[in-house]
Amino acid sequence: MRIIVPLKLVPDLVEELEVDDSGRALDTEYVKFKLNEFDDHALEEALLLKDSAGAEVTAMAVVTEDADKLLFTALAKGADSAIKLTGGEPKDSHQLARMFANAIASQGFDLVMTGVQSVDDRDGQLGPILATYLGIPCISVVTGVQISGNSVTINKEYSGGVMAEFEVDTPAVLGIQAARQTPRYAPVSKIRQIQQTTSIETVAAGDLGSGAGSEISHMSRPEKGQGAKMLNSVDELLEVLKQVGLV
């Protein structure tokens, strides 16, 4: 079974985010980017399937300043191959999905495992858009995957801790919420070793399509609420609860 894992960089939310002068985009000059945490879980779940069922895992990313580091890290973690998409600068989830779909369709695959969402999915999540472009089913919020022949058995989370089990024929796209274990760590020494011994395949992006079909008219920080008061002891908490009549 061949699994393709699209990887995406997103702004590191530890950083303070600013809107640029246009008022319609983030000011990215000083923003640090990191791997979408849900994509990290998608990669981990794919690697677990490699460990347990011999799946072949390919990591894929759009060319950016940090794409090589991202892909070499995926290889160091255990991915079998890596593909870098060139020749396009996607502006939204639809264009990003179109880039991945163009490349994935030419690769041959059984599963696409991607993060269930990312912090900038204004026009929808990558997985369902990608599945629509590829003409295959998609299930989101997946927390466990098992391979059984030409299908996979997955767990999907609902609210309130309820989950459902589904059987899905491949090929399919899975939006991974959480891998069965914490994403593994790749030591820097191993990443450097991989850089010297392994190469990344390059694939042209192809047509990006027309995109989201909606325009951003304004971006701003949310209006602040009344703030939070930090309490330092149980006694303080009890005092607050007494004041609101709960004890």
Partner: peptide
């Protein structure tokens, strides 16, 4: 998530999430 995004994409309708 499994319904809104694919339906909008398939019918070429803009999708707004979050």
């Amino acid at each position: 998530m499994d319904i809104g995004t694919p339906v909008g994409t398939a019918l070429d309708m803009p999708v707004i999430a979050y």
